[in-house]
């Protein structure tokens, strides 16, 4: 296993921490446990319901992993969802389904990003050379244009901010990036991040501190005087 990849079978990651509020069964919607049990038996309706429930979350993770590119995020999220349901039989229920889902989704996105980079290096070596500076090497040229409507000045500013945020994230190590992303974008707590990544809470805290300091330094022009 690579150092920056999360191990879904890591026993350290099987503590029963509340990663996300467990979906309880209601009169209209069954809970995660029930849906997972049925999905493991290839029940297409249960699979559809779980996809519907977690699609946006997985898409969000993918979006932040692929350099804020919507269409690439959709492809990546689709791959991640496929990975999740292909591996569903390996989910032993020792942690929350959502914890396990985060872990598989993050790994799938890391794999996908690595694969895309490899192809990008082969097909567009000049672009890859420009990425050498960053540790995670996101393609910052591909930031989508800001929305057409609204104040043009604030649109330009939003585009610039997005580019700078991405460049700042690019300077982080893979672990710092994952931890920062799960905290700031996915709003997981430190114990939840530890659960998802299999790291000790102290390690998560250290990565988070360094990542925040680095992002703060990179984005100093956006910090109010």
């Amino acid at each position: 296993m690579s150092a920056d990849k999360l191990n879904p079978d890591d026993p350290n990651a099987r503590r029963d921490l509340p990663v996300a509020p467990a979906r309880e069964a209601s009169a209209t919607a069954p809970g995660d446990d029930e849906l997972v049990r049925r999905a493991r038996n290839d029940d297409p309706r249960a699979i559809a319901q779980l996809v519907d429930r977690y699609q946006k979350k997985v898409y969000g993770i993918a979006y932040q992993f692929c350099g804020f590119d919507k269409s690439e995020a959709q492809d990546m999220a689709q791959e991640a969802l496929l990975q999740i349901f292909r591996n569903l039989k390996r989910f032993e229920g020792r942690s929350q389904f959502s914890t396990w889902l985060y872990r598989v989704a993050v790994n799938a996105c890391l794999d996908s990003r690595r694969r895309r980079r490899r192809w990008s290096h082969i097909l567009f070596p000049w672009r890859a050379e420009r990425q050498e500076g960053g540790s995670t090497g996101t393609v910052i040229d591909n930031i989508p244009a800001p929305e057409e409507d609204g104040d043009p000045l604030s649109n330009v500013s939003a585009g610039e901010l997005k580019r700078d945020v991405m460049a700042a994230l690019d300077t982080l190590s893979a672990k710092q990036h994952i931890v920062f992303q799960l905290k700031v974008f996915q709003d997981l707590s430190i114990p939840e991040i530890a659960e998802v990544t299999g790291m000790a809470e102290g390690t998560v805290k250290t990565h988070l501190f360094r990542a925040t300091q680095a992002v703060r330094a990179q984005l100093r022009r956006w910090v109010a005087p």
Binding site: P44, I47, A48, V51, D52, Q55, K56, Y59, G60, Y63, Q64, F68, K70, A73, Q74, A77, Q78, L81, L82, F85, P144, A158, L161, K162, V165, M166, Q181, V184, F185, V215, L219, W222
Partner: peptide, 25 residues
């Protein structure tokens, strides 16, 4: 707040969400 706003993905349209879900199904 600014960083979170930058990293928030644009909403998936219904068609996009259906397409993704359809591929998995």
């Amino acid at each position: 707040v600014q960083v979170r706003a930058s990293g928030s993905p644009p909403e998936l349209s219904d068609a996009e969400a259906r397409r993704m879900a359809g591929a998995v199904s």
